[in-house]
Design a binder for these strands. Structure first.
Lengths: 343, 343
DNA sequence: CTGAAAGCGCTAACAC
DNA sequence: GTGTTAGCGCTTTCAG
């Protein structure tokens, strides 16, 4: 119930020792005799001593706190990455501050500025859409100027020289086309997606087109449908009605969800002639049986955190790398069974 | 590129002013003349001065950081609450540290201890399942002893005297039964759920049973099916096969998902005779057309944060309240249309 | 093995 | 309007 916390000074007076001795004793320094350490520890417990972290961080200049900035918290990809980051950090004695950019440059700039004031030892960032589309350096210049160790994930930012952990979306798309064509004998494949994450979507489209070329599959203006949600629903419906495609590749979670809604209303006859493949993890695949590539978000989080801690420990400002994470191709059926197809 | 940051002292020497004058000037104190302020600000910009937050927090004793502890980051309910918390906090000049308990007492104790060392001005917690089921005080005693302002959300903890923001799950269940019975003419209703969040599930079952009694609906041993995932799938399948129930109430997201998977395989004939109602927000309702109660997680987050900041500002250690948040009953169809039924 | 002392960078009471 | 000063609680040389 004590509101005022015991300080080192109080403890030292209680014990008849100097502050520095008590400090060393509590941090288990070998300069201090075991007997003294024991006495100090006992008294510390009795008086409910708790180190003032703020003071020690201030003194040592390091907080063991990592700042994480994401575009949103309600997208399962970012939730899982965050989960991986938290797991790795807390296992290594670090804590995590979380801020949200809402995909806006100004909010991102604001939170990065406020995180760059000494409170964090390093930053993990997935940039706002606006920052990337406009190639703005407004938000990133602050932490960069301050020389704060930094790792990016999820969305490539060519303007920033630092480690970046990204999905290998080009390969992911390619693999899904391969699955649809070779595995499911689809010969007319359409890719659908929203405009929400256009930077990554472009990479996915590249992989998709490469695959179409590679397998000698037809490619028209309608082979790639990228629209905003409402328009996409309309376009998909039309395409399905026309019945020209036998394979559909969903480039993001949202388009998969929209597609599911549309297909649910249709007859088994129609459904039997359409194969679906999508990006996404098993938490999301609750409707259509389909093939999917798990983006390994949790793993990305852990790797990102690991990379950052390494950078913090060994401050070398070169040899930055961009790591592309492969996806796991899985087959998901409605009984919840999961089968790893490739790896 | 400067790695060493400019300090107030350096700035003051550069300007030929005292440290305190510079400090006051930068915080726009009215003690300082406008002319001096302008000079100071200019020089600060030129030399890229950035306040050392750690030092000022240490000095003032307040960090404007709130610690948030949740059982998991990958559950959409907690993601949305977190999103609401972040929104409110950042709009009010606060930052957020996030830690995960993984529903374990020891992890919760660990993170709460490390958050209670002066780094945060207040705590927002949704307790670990284990803490609540075992009625353990191991994790909460540390912040309570330290007198850190604290608000709980999502899971009632009767052991802790502080503000608690909870869902009104009893009423939620009642309303869904009312919807199924009065609106959809169901007369044999079964409630299904997992064991993941047993504390809240019990409250939901209470509301469910009250409603059955209130509306004079039949109640048997099989009216409530609470099992672990695999068993639940089996039980649901049996119940549907028997065809005794015309209404199904899903008590959590997971059971809704499982049910969706099971129903998808069935004939339209069977489906037409079953009405589904569930707890959950629109992000989750992507399969079955159904009625649902949105738990307003984002709103809960904002209210929780608001309550905490109020407590921090006016430190009164009494009049703690428990607020029950009502849900919004909505109707969801497969076109993504949402209709507010009540509220 | 223990203690004295400096000081991290800043704020705020108080003096001028 | 500006400067002086004390000190937040801790770590860390350096002396003894």
């Amino acid at each position: 119930m004590t509101n005022k916390r015991t300080t080192l000074r109080e403890l030292s007076q209680l014990l008849g020792l100097s502050i520095s001795t008590v400090s060393k004793a509590l941090s288990d320094s070998k300069e201090i005799s075991e007997k003294t350490k024991e006495r100090v520890r006992e008294t510390a417990v009795i008086y409910n001593y708790r180190q003032n972290k703020l003071a020690s961080c201030f003194r040592t200049g390091s907080t063991k706190v990592i700042g994480v900035v994401v575009p949103t918290l309600t997208d399962i990809f970012f939730s899982e990455v965050l989960s991986g980051i938290e797991r790795y950090l807390s296992a290594n004695g670090y804590a995590m501050m979380v801020a949200v950019s809402d995909d806006s440059i100004s909010k991102e700039a604001k939170v990065l500025k406020s995180l760059s004031n000494g409170f964090v030892d390093g930053l993990i960032i997935s940039n706002a859409q606006e920052t990337l589309v406009k190639a703005s350096n407004k938000s990133m210049s602050v932490p960069i100027n301050d020389g704060i160790p930094m790792v990016l994930f999820g969305r490539k930012n060519p303007m920033v020289k630092c480690d970046q952990i990204l999905n290998d979306f080009s390969t992911v798309s390619f693999q899904l086309v391969e699955y649809l064509h070779r595995g499911q004998k689809c010969n007319n494949i359409v890719a659908i997606g929203t405009e929400d994450d256009i930077i990554n979507t472009r990479v996915k489209i590249d992989g998709f087109k490469q695959a179409l070329n590679f397998f000698g599959l037809p490619q028209t203006l309608n082979s790639v449908l990228i629209y905003q949600k409402a328009d996409l629903i309309r376009k998909i419906s039309i395409v399905i009605e026309e019945g020209k495609f036998d394979g559909i590749l969903c480039l993001d979670y949202e388009s998969y969800n929209l597609l599911s809604g549309i297909l649910t209303g249709l007859s088994a006859e129609v459904l039997d002639n359409i194969q679906v493949a999508t990006l996404g993890n098993t938490n999301l695949l609750k409707r259509l049986p389909c093939a999917s590539i798990d983006l390994q978000a949790e793993k990305i989080g852990q790797l990102t955190a690991k990379t950052l801690l390494k950078r913090i420990k060994a401050k070398r400002y070169k040899d930055y790398f961009t790591k592309l994470i492969e996806g796991n191709l899985i087959n998901y059926d409605l009984n919840g069974n999961i089968e790893l197809i490739l790896c």
